[in-house]
Structures are given as C-alpha cells and as structure tokens.
Design a protein around this nucleic acid. Structure first.
Length: 289
DNA sequence: AGGCATGTTACAGG
DNA sequence: ACCTGTAACATGCC
C-alpha cells in the first residue's frame, strides 16, 4: 500500500514493537523479490540487535549492531507482520490472517526474534526488496543517493521547485511522481495534491504560475501529514480482523472516484479518469485549470 | 477473458 | 549527454 504516509505508519509501529530485540534466526522462503535476497548477507543479521528504524522516502532502514543496515522497499504489496507466541498479530501492518494458507503463501522472509516472536515479510507481487548493506555504504547507496528532498522537510520549498523545473517541460503529475524531484509521493497522493491545488495533472511544469506552485507545495505537506495522522490509506477491503487499517482513503477527493460528483459543493461536474504514463489519473475538468 | 493495481528501473527514442 | 515515456517485473481481483 505504500506511499510515504503508509511507510511512515509502518515504521512507527515497527519501532515501537521490535526496537532493541535480537534477531535469532532468519528464514528465507523465497528469495526472488524485486532483487534476489542475498542469503549470505541476510544471515549475518542472526545474533544482532536491532538498534532502530528510520524512513527515507518510501524506504525503511533497519539499523543493527556491527554497522549493518537492512534496506527495505515495500514495492506495491510488501507488508510486515509481527507475530507473538500466541500467534496474535500485532497491529504492525495491514491485512493478513496467519491461519489462512492463502495469505501465508507470500511470507517470503521470516525473522525469528526473542521470546518466540516473529517478524514476517509478506509480499504478494514481489516488487519489494530487502538488501543488507554496511553503514559505510549507506550514503552512496544506489537507491538512496539520487532521491530528492523529503516532501515534509523545509528543503522542499518554492525556491527548490522553481530551480528544478527550469528548462523542463514534462507534465506536473510526472514531476511529482519522480522520486528524484521529491521523494515519497506516489500515484494516489499526487492525484489528491493536484486536485486540492486546482491544477490539471497534464499541465506542463514550465507553464505553472507561482501561486500554483506554492499551492502544490503546501497541499503536498498538508495531505501527507493528514494521511499519517489517519494511519495511512488502505484501499482494498480485506475481511480479516487482524492488521490495522488506515482510514485516510475516506478522505480521498479524486483517487478512484471516476464518475462521482466533484466534492466541491458549487461544482456539478464528475471526476474524469485518464491515463498519464500508464497511471490512473483522476481530476475535475472544472476545478483544476 | 481482459484490464487494472499504492512502485521502480532498464531501455529506447528524441 | 540529457530528457522523457514505455514496458517489464508477479500476482490477484473485478
């Protein structure tokens, strides 16, 4: 499910639950994730204590003793589940029922922790990945070094935006999705940001007015903060009682709302869906200029 | 049956 | 060399 808010929510719950625990054993059920899991490296985590977890963009970074880091990207469907001795799933992530074979089929990596507790990495589509790196290689890591600023930080601002778009002519939606420009936004939140900013997704960045740029920046920060507050967005309606659902999907104004009435009370248009770069793009033709 | 899906990236083409 | 868009990855759901 993961764009920045979802990854942040996962990070917080993970940190609360498994901080300072020792990894007793690592089991690999399937190493064919987005990149093959390096068995030799991941086994080095056995016996190490988890010192902390951080988020950068949509990445989770687990810090261990001995200067080892575990870099995790959840892709489209990657999830962590925490399981304790009585098999109760702690509310670490979203939908999953450990008693359902269908769900367990996608448990690819299992970390056995102290006190018979487990952390499971489950990923239906296997677009996520797990890499073990040394602290020294952290800054130069290929996945991290080209990332743009965190959208919630101060360096994502008007000045940066203006400078970056100089000479560029791509659609504003593609720009916002580009992790090199700003890191952490995905398709859902970009659709929402552009609706609130009153800007059509296909507008070329060179034609954006300064007032529009300012709105885009402000609403980006607002939406992400709100989404985190609501526990992220959970799109699909699974039936398990385990796992915590975010509720920010209830606040979507355009994403997935094709044909529905624009939420602006003085507008009688319906939300349109088009494709931009193979991604579902939702907008209101009246409220977005 | 076919289209669609919250992400990234290798590659092709301008 | 740079910029941009597309296809591919794996699986399940509607």
């Amino acid at each position: 499910m993961p764009e920045l808010p979802e990854v942040e929510v996962v990070k917080r719950s993970l940190a609360k639950k498994i901080q300072n625990l020792i990894i007793k054993k690592v089991k690999i059920n399937d190493d064919k994730l987005r990149f093959r899991v390096n068995k030799k490296k991941i086994l080095k985590l056995e016996g190490l204590r988890l010192k902390g977890i951080e988020r950068r963009s949509k990445f989770l970074i687990f810090f261990f003793d001995e200067s080892y880091l575990m870099l995790v990207h959840l892709g489209m469907t990657g999830k962590f589940f925490f399981v304790n001795k009585s098999k109760k799933i702690h509310k670490t992530s979203f939908y999953y029922n450990i008693d359902k074979k269908k769900d367990r089929k996608h448990d690819h990596i299992i970390f056995f922790l102290e006190k018979k507790q487990k952390l499971i990495y489950n990923d239906v589509r296997k677009f996520g990945f797990i890499k073990i790196i040394k602290l020294d290689d952290f800054k130069s890591n290929i996945h991290l070094k080209y990332l743009g600023p965190e959208p919630l930080k101060k360096n994502y601002n008007f000045k940066y935006f203006k400078k970056y778009i100089k000479g560029k002519k791509r659609p504003v939606k593609n720009l916002l999705m580009d992790q090199k420009f700003v890191s952490g936004l995905g398709n859902i939140y970009v659709n929402e940001v552009l609706y609130l900013s009153g800007v059509k997704p296909m507008r070329k960045v060179k034609n954006l007015k300064n007032t529009e740029i300012k709105k885009i920046i402000l609403f980006t920060k607002k939406i992400l903060r709100d989404a985190i507050k609501f526990g992220g967005s959970s799109i699909k309606d699974f039936s398990t009682i385990y796992g915590k659902k975010g509720t920010f999907q209830q606040h979507f104004r355009v994403y997935g709302k094709k044909g529905e009435k624009c939420s602006n009370t003085d507008c009688n248009k319906s939300i349109i869906k088009i494709n931009i770069s193979n991604r579902g793009t939702f907008y209101c033709s009246r409220c977005q200029k």
